[in-house]
Amino acid sequence: MLSRTTAKRASSGIDYSGLAIPKGGRKVGRIKPGRYENAKHVSWLHDWSCVLAGRGECDGPVVVHHLLKPWVGFRGTGRRSDDRNGIPMCDGCHRALHARGDEDAFFTETTGFPEFGRRQAEELWKGSDYWEAVP
């Protein structure tokens, strides 16, 4: 016996063979594009000092902040932006940014420039020892 979905597909006359089959859940049919990852680039970013080091008191070890509003790529609910959108921040600045909740407002308050994080991420990615062309 055919399921209702299989019967619908068969009656539509469309050939569904060869198409990607999304994995379970209620959002069947919605395929999320992959997230670009580059562990060497992220590790390289850990060697830098906080991007806000010259503008105030930095506190704690450097972590990599993945931009909430990426300069390239995408971000979704429950998903961080890809590794090209990472910037080194000390733990204190990183916590302050997330406590503020609005990345552009945070950078406007600290640097006077809302695009600061995106510009820093772009420059760091293009100057990275591990840069590679990404489709």
Results as ranks from 00 to 15, higher is better:
Ala96Tyr: 01
Leu45Lys: 05
Ala121Phe: 08
Pro114Phe: 06
Ser12Ala: 11
Glu132Ile: 05
Leu67Asp: 00
Trp48Ala: 02
Phe107Leu: 06
Thr5Arg: 09
Gly73Val: 03
Ala105Pro: 02
Ser17Ala: 10
Asn85Leu: 05
Lys126Thr: 07
Glu123Tyr: 12
Trp71Tyr: 15
Arg80His: 11
Pro61Gln: 12
Gly34Arg: 09
Asp82Cys: 15
Arg80Lys: 14
Leu45Pro: 09
Pro22Asp: 03
Ala96Trp: 02
Arg26Val: 03
Lys8Arg: 13
Gly29Pro: 03
Gly18Gln: 06
Leu97Phe: 04
Val63Tyr: 06
Ile14Glu: 05
Asp102Met: 04
Asp15Gly: 09
Ala121Asn: 04
Pro61Met: 07
Met1His: 06
Asp91Ala: 12
Ala53His: 14
Gly112Val: 09
Arg84His: 07
Leu67Gln: 07
Gly86Cys: 04
Val62Glu: 03
Asp82Trp: 02
Asp82Ser: 13
Arg26Asn: 02
Arg26Gly: 04
Gly18Val: 06
Ser49Glu: 14
Arg100Met: 11
His46Ile: 07
Val51Pro: 02
Asp129Phe: 04
Glu109Lys: 11
Gly29Asn: 11
Val51Asn: 00
Glu122Gln: 15
His46Phe: 09
Gly60Cys: 06
Trp125Phe: 11
Ser12Thr: 12
Ile87Met: 08
Tyr16Trp: 13
Gly34Val: 08
Phe113Thr: 09
Leu52Asp: 03
Leu52Lys: 03
Ala96Met: 11
Val64Asn: 13
Gly101Arg: 07
Gly25Ala: 07
Leu124Tyr: 05
Cys90Thr: 08
Arg118Val: 02
Gly24Trp: 10
Thr77Arg: 10
His66Met: 08
Gly34Glu: 13
Tyr130Met: 01
